[in-house]
C-alpha cells in the first residue's frame, strides 16, 4: 500500500506542468551560459592560474571543468528556488485546491500521508539535481573535450587538478551532496507548507530562512557559530574536490543536514496533525 500511495503521489507531482519549470529553466540557463563560454575569453584567468602552477592549461579546459563552473550559480540561486517551489506546494496547494479534504475523508493517517508526500519531494529533489548535473555535463561536452578537470574555489581554499576519470567520479559525488542541499530546502518548504498558509508563502518562508542563514553565516560576529547555519554545511559539494578530501568534515555536515531535514519533517507533521482541515 505504501508504495502504491508513493507511486500515486509521484503521479500527482509529475503530472502537473509547474513541476517541470526547474528542469526547463536549467536547460535554458545552461544554453545561455554555453553561448557565453563560446563567445567570451573566460578561460584567460584559468590559463594564467594553471600555467602559474605548472600545469598545461589546454589539458584542463574541459567539459568537466566547464560543467562544474556552470553548476555554481545554479546550485546557489536556481536550485533552492525550484525545490522550495515544489516543496511549498506539496501540502499547501492541496489544502488550497480542496483535494486535501477529499484525501482526509479516507482512513489514511495524517502522518502516513505526509511521509508519502515528503518522500515524493525527496525523489523530486534528487531527480532535479541529477538532471541539473547531467544537463550541465552534456552541454559542456558539446563544446569542450573530455579531458582533465580543474577546480578552483578560493573561499574554501580549494585548488585541484584531476584526471578525467577521477574528475568524473568526484563530479558524481558532488551531485550527491548537492542533492542533500536540495532535500534540506525541500524539507524546509514542506514544513512551512504544513502550516495553514498559501503555497507561495511556504516557498517564500523557506527561501527567507535560507538567505537569513547565508547572511548571518558571513557576519564576523557569528564566526564561532557557523556550524549552526545550514548554509555552512551546504559547501560539501565543493569540498569533495579538496586534496586531501576532508571526509570527516563532509560526513559531519551531511549528518547535520540529514537531521535538519528530519526535524523539519517532524515539525511539519506535528503542526499538521493538530490542524483542523476545513473547506
Amino acid at each position: 500500500m505504501f508504495f502504491a500511495q508513493l507511486k500515486n503521489e509521484l503521479w500527482k507531482l509529475f503530472g502537473k506542468k509547474r513541476t517541470y519549470i526547474g528542469f526547463g529553466s536549467f536547460v535554458l540557463v545552461q544554453a545561455v551560459m554555453m553561448l557565453m563560454f563560446k563567445y567570451t575569453r573566460w578561460e584567460t584567468q584559468f590559463e594564467t592560474m594553471l600555467s602559474g602552477n605548472g600545469y598545461l592549461a589546454a589539458d584542463y579546459i574541459s567539459a568537466l571543468t566547464v560543467a562544474l563552473i556552470m553548476l555554481t550559480p545554479q546550485v546557489l540561486l536556481l536550485l533552492p528556488l525550484y525545490v522550495a517551489l515544489v516543496g511549498g506546494d506539496l501540502v499547501a496547494k492541496e489544502a488550497e485546491d480542496g483535494t486535501l479534504r477529499m484525501i482526509l475523508s479516507r482512513p489514511i493517517s495524517r502522518f502516513r500521508l505526509l511521509l508519502v508526500k515528503w518522500i515524493a519531494g525527496i525523489i523530486f529533489a534528487m531527480l532535479l539535481v541529477l538532471a541539473l548535473n547531467a544537463i550541465a555535463l552534456v552541454f559542456a561536452r558539446m563544446l569542450f573535450p573530455w579531458k582533465g578537470m580543474f577546480v578552483f574555489a578560493p573561499m574554501l581554499q580549494t585548488f585541484g587538478v584531476f584526471s578525467a576519470e577521477d574528475g568524473a567520479k568526484l563530479y558524481f559525488f558532488s551531485s550527491l551532496f548537492i542533492s542533500m542541499n536540495a532535500i534540506v530546502l525541500m524539507s524546509l518548504s514542506f514544513m512551512f507548507s504544513c502550516l495553514n498558509i498559501k503555497p507561495a508563502a511556504a516557498t517564500i518562508l523557506a527561501l527567507s530562512y535560507l538567505f537569513i542563514n547565508m547572511v548571518m553565516e558571513n557576519i564576523p560576529f557569528f564566526r564561532d557559530y557557523q556550524g549552526w547555519f545550514i548554509t555552512h554545511h551546504f559547501d560539501c559539494w565543493v569540498r569533495v574536490f579538496q586534496s586531501p578530501t576532508q571526509w570527516s568534515r563532509i560526513l559531519q555536515s551531511e549528518l547535520t543536514l540529514l537531521a535538519v531535514s528530519a526535524t523539519a519533517f517532524l515539525i511539519g507533521a506535528t503542526v499538521f496533525h493538530v490542524r483542523d482541515i476545513k473547506s
Binding site: 503530472g15 502537473k16 483535494t99 479534504r101 477529499m102 475523508s105
Partner: peptide, 9 residues
C-alpha cells in the same frame, strides 16, 4: 463535499 476537488490535470 460541496464543489468536489480533483487533480484536474
Amino acid at each position: 463535499f460541496e464543489a468536489p476537488a480533483f487533480y484536474d490535470y
